[in-house]
Design a protein around this nucleic acid. Structure first.
Lengths: 166, 166
DNA sequence: GTACTGTCAATACTCAGTATCAATAATATA
DNA sequence: TATATTATTGATACTGAGTATTGACAGTAC
């Protein structure tokens, strides 16, 4: 389900131009702060918090970082996901419609698609009598790396956040 | 899918003793603030925010309200759900394992279960190679009442929050 | 009734953003 | 190229949703 190793130089460049292209298509101006952000995000693997990005780019204003992250979300190239405990994490998006597989150990976020999900949604659409307008689905797991190394304690509090344990 | 009308007196009493029983079973002391909270929550229909409850019980401290809501979550009788825009809503829980159907108009939250969901989860468990530890699934819709009355604009921003439009 | 310990209210704090706004920079146009 | 237009920026203050702390107090066990 993808590697945990750092991105190759070409993958980083690819990611960077994807981000810039998304901004372009979204009709946004190409500014120095946005280029900085694109460079920084393109290098990242896994997920990250907004504050990590803020801290890594001290020359940019907090508001600018948050604004641009929102922009990239609207441009469809960045996703905001919620950890079981409730804290938000961002990750770069690849494909179109997908859901997130979140490791509760290392907070790595992978995308997945599966026909069983679409099938389930169709069944639900028929089951409830009304017009479905959206859905949110996240699966939490412990990835191979984390299981082997014992990362990410068992004491994930999932209560009160409507995350169901299996 | 349930009525939007206020609860009957007996339903309120039932809900209230359910809450108190859950606290009891959870090993918590029976105090005046908790009884107040139980009374208040039992009367509510639909979903509510923590601050609504705080405002409605000015004799209780903010922290007490939040603590007790968390407690009730742990006791398995209250669920915290997230609206598409990200704001949290609480609702009293009935059955055991269920998911939430959230109306984006009136913020009413209903519970549902459906075999297609469990089937989907089993399929996903087989599909990904790792140990699933939890999931979060919410379906957003516009309920009949809201559709007829045109409640809840079309301008629900779902971007950047990883809520997928249908 | 006394001790023990859970719970309380008040307060200050954190985290994750958003609103405001004057200054500035990117693009469009002449 | 110069100028006009408008988007964007960074600083700052603010909000919403909670959590941590603490000394006072109240439930329960004995």
């Amino acid at each position: 389900m993808g590697t945990a190793s750092p991105k190759s130089a070409s993958a980083v460049m690819q990611a960077e131009s994807n981000i810039l292209a998304a901004l372009e298509e979204h009709g946004s101006r190409m500014t120095w702060p946005r280029r900085q952000l694109a460079r920084t995000l393109a290098r990242r693997t896994g997920s990250f918090s907004a504050e990590e990005i803020v801290a890594g780019l001290p020359t940019l204003g907090r508001a600018t970082v948050y604004r641009t992250l929102r922009l990239l979300g609207e441009a469809g190239i960045l996703c905001k996901t919620t950890m079981p405990g409730g804290s938000p994490r961002y990750s770069l998006d690849g494909a179109h419609h997908h859901h997130h597989l979140v490791c509760v150990g290392c907070e790595r976020i992978d995308e997945f698609r599966h026909p069983s999900i679409e099938r389930m949604l169709r069944a639900m659409n028929a089951h409830i009598g009304t017009e479905l307008v959206g859905h949110r689905l996240e699966l939490y797991h412990r990835c191979d790396v984390c299981r082997e190394s014992g990362q990410g304690g068992e004491d994930i509090h999932m209560h009160g956040t409507h995350v169901h344990a299996h």
